[in-house]
């Protein structure tokens, strides 16, 4: 398939559509509030880093980033640890209730979160996980584990059975085979899965906000503070928004080759 001018123009147009709102946010984050509210300018006239300084010097701001990072990493670790063996079971074996279990796992993405928040809050309070990073990480497993099993199962089905059988004949035990041979073979699949799990945990707000108050409060929830008595502090709001995009960008940068190559190994 050759790249034509029409295609290049089309994709450029779409990327422009994607980037313009983000550029606007970035633009605003370097402006002073008087410039934001005064006249509409396409780029900052009085370039300022003051908005970022507010965030980096106030621990109640930047601790939000640290909290988000901690529970997202915990969530990725827990999700991969439980989803890998399960996905292997689904891709290799038939067992009682396998199809129904798989569908049941998927239904957990369908429950409307709004009303489930109250029992969630009570459940996690009653076992002492309220306002802890572990609590949020476990709660996010609800929708991330099914997704991870789903994606990984697709990748694992792409690995021929003969690989397993040869390894067992060669005297590998299951844990050794799984860790030494099988996991390296689906490396890019794991990368892609980790990317998705990271993404959904990072962008989720409702559960994270409900299950935290101070110690584990995520950055996305702290952002609502910018609406103060004097109106909205647009500059700081924009700067905080820009900063929430950066971790995601770093992750996607690291897995970019896997995303392209890795998807192709999956269920396609």
């Amino acid at each position: 398939m050759k790249m034509t001018k029409g295609k290049a123009f089309g994709i450029a147009l779409y990327i422009l559509f994607v980037l313009t709102p983000i550029y606007w946010l970035l633009n605003m984050s370097f402006k002073t509030n008087s410039e934001i509210l005064g006249t509409l300018t396409l780029w900052p006239q009085e370039f300022t880093l003051a908005n970022y300084a507010v965030i980096f010097t106030d621990s109640s701001w930047y601790s939000g980033y640290i909290n988000s990072m901690i529970y997202v990493s915990l969530n990725v670790a827990i999700t991969l640890a439980v989803a890998l063996p399960a996905a292997y079971a689904f891709s290799r074996y038939k067992f009682v209730g396998d199809k129904h279990l798989f569908f049941w796992l998927l239904t957990n993405r369908m429950a409307p979160p709004a009303v489930f928040l109250l029992p969630f809050f009570q459940l996690y309070s009653s076992i002492g996980l309220f306002d802890t990073h572990l609590g949020v990480a476990l709660a996010h497993c609800l929708f991330n584990v099914p997704l991870a099993v789903w994606i990984l199962e697709g990748f694992m089905s792409g690995v021929p059975r003969e690989v397993d059988e040869t390894a067992y004949i060669d005297g590998y035990s299951f844990p050794r085979f799984f860790g030494r041979i099988f996991l390296p073979m689906i490396r890019s699949g794991i990368g892609v899965t980790a990317f998705f799990v990271f993404m959904f945990s990072w962008v989720e707000l409702l559960l994270a906000r409900t299950l935290t108050s101070v110690d584990a409060k995520p950055i996305a929830a702290i952002m609502t503070r910018t609406v103060g008595a004097t109106g909205v502090d647009w500059g700081v709001l924009a700067a905080a928004g820009v900063l929430t995009i950066i971790p995601g960008l770093l992750v996607v940068y690291f897995v970019r080759n896997h995303v392209a190559k890795g998807f192709a190994l999956g269920r396609v």
Binding site: I15, L25, M199, W202, V203, A220, L249, V252, R256
Partner: peptide
Amino acid sequence: CLILLAIPLLIPWNVVGTIW
């Protein structure tokens, strides 16, 4: 292109609301 396209997916949902 992959990276640029992925950006909107990686923004927390309330920030998406704020952007718009």
